[in-house]
Amino acid sequence: MNIFRLAGDLFHLISIFILIHKMTTSKSCSGISFKSQALYLLVYVTRYLDLFWTFALYNSTMKIIFIGSSAYVLHLMTGPFKPTHDPNIDTFKVRYLIGGAAILALLFPYKWTPAEVLWTFSIWLESVAILPQLFMVQRTGAAETITTHYIFALGAYRALYIPNWIYRYLTSTFWDPLSIIAGVIQTVLYSDFFYIYYTKVLQGRKFELP
């Protein structure tokens, strides 16, 4: 463990807290992409299969929190707050994301075992899972401030993993090229958003696309 990874994981937890807080206080999931949330649940379920055969207090606890909170968000979106979700603006074609991640996972896993292929699939899928959400923000041209905080915290999580990987590359004999490439792609996808978030939201203005 190092400070970058810990900070990244904390941002991930914060993003989930912001999302659930936004939905339960406003009793609405407007502005949140159901498709992105469904992809995240798929990411966590396929990546954390090792819960069944490995245990480490920190990691196992976090994995259960990520799967549980993700399932809870989907429950809120399909149950109590379903009337506030507008499928007409959540139209990103996720089949290409799932298909692309599946092809890359089958071609380049570290090992050709079901668990490793699913792990690789989850890494690639996570790198693009935010696209339906960003697409939705782009379509509507604006987002509630709390939604932008959520997207920022989620982006900061993987961005902070990058210095973690650099640190680990310098201090150990192993590295994980697959996670690094996917993590960099993931961070790049957020970069436009980070820029607008920094120039608008942090200076007290509404998040509106130019």
């Binding site: 990874r5 192993f174 590295w175 994980d176």
Partner: peptide
């Protein structure tokens, strides 16, 4: 350096 999956990350 060996390219392997870092098993201890989330």
């Amino acid at each position: 350096k060996e390219a392997v999956k870092l098993h201890d990350e989330l």
